[in-house]
């Protein structure tokens, strides 16, 4: 009762903002969405196998985007999938984060410059962590998840926020790559 009036702080009270507490809680219970796309999805499964065991960090797969916090884009995103990927992202509740796993999700990978491949998933959704590799090792995905954990609980603002992408961004609208024959 007398705490507010007195100058003396009891020793078992930690001062901080409520945001810090909430962010710490969020960073310790990141739930990724079960959305395997391509080769990287097998390594994503291997991250949850008994050898790497990402479960021990409080990360469990959720099958519905409504319950998930993290989307791991594990593979090549093509123009047919892009709309569905964006819809899944929109269905996830705020706050939400995206990990781009592997060369294909980063910039198209070996399939870059092909007619059907989106050259980087960051054209569709804002990406927080990029993982290089084709495919990345499970250890690399685990490091990315731990980096993301730091980023969520970031007090010093060391990490940049990703660029926001409008929900109606149309990958098909890129010049010459819309699958429609140009009028000559």
């Amino acid at each position: 009762m007398g705490l507010l009036g007195s100058d003396e702080r009891p020793r078992d009270v930690i001062l901080g903002t409520l945001d810090d507490l909430i962010n710490m809680a969020r960073s310790r219970s990141m739930w990724p969405l079960t959305f395997g796309i391509a080769c990287c999805a097998i390594e994503m499964m291997a991250t949850w196998d008994p050898k790497i065991d990402a479960d021990r960090f409080g990360m469990f797969f959720r099958n519905t985007p409504r319950q998930a916090d993290v989307m791991i884009v594990s593979g090549t995103v093509n123009k047919k999938l892009a709309k569905r990927l964006r819809r899944l992202y929109d269905q996830m509740a705020e706050p939400k984060w995206v990990i781009s796993m592997g060369a294909c999700a980063n910039q198209g990978g070996p399939f870059r410059q092909g007619y059907s491949v989106v050259e980087g998933v960051d054209k569709i959704v804002p990406v927080d962590v990029y993982i290089p590799g084709c495919p990345p090792r499970p250890e690399a995905l685990l490091q990315a998840l731990l980096l993301l954990r730091d980023k969520i609980a970031d007090r010093e603002l060391r990490y940049k926020k990703p660029r926001e992408i409008p929900a109606d961004y149309d990958v098909m609208a890129e010049p010459g790559k819309d699958g429609r024959l140009p009028v000559l």
Partner: peptide, 8 residues
């Protein structure tokens, strides 16, 4: 493999 709207 491609979507119905494609002409290519």
């Amino acid at each position: 493999l491609l979507e119905d709207e494609w002409e290519l």
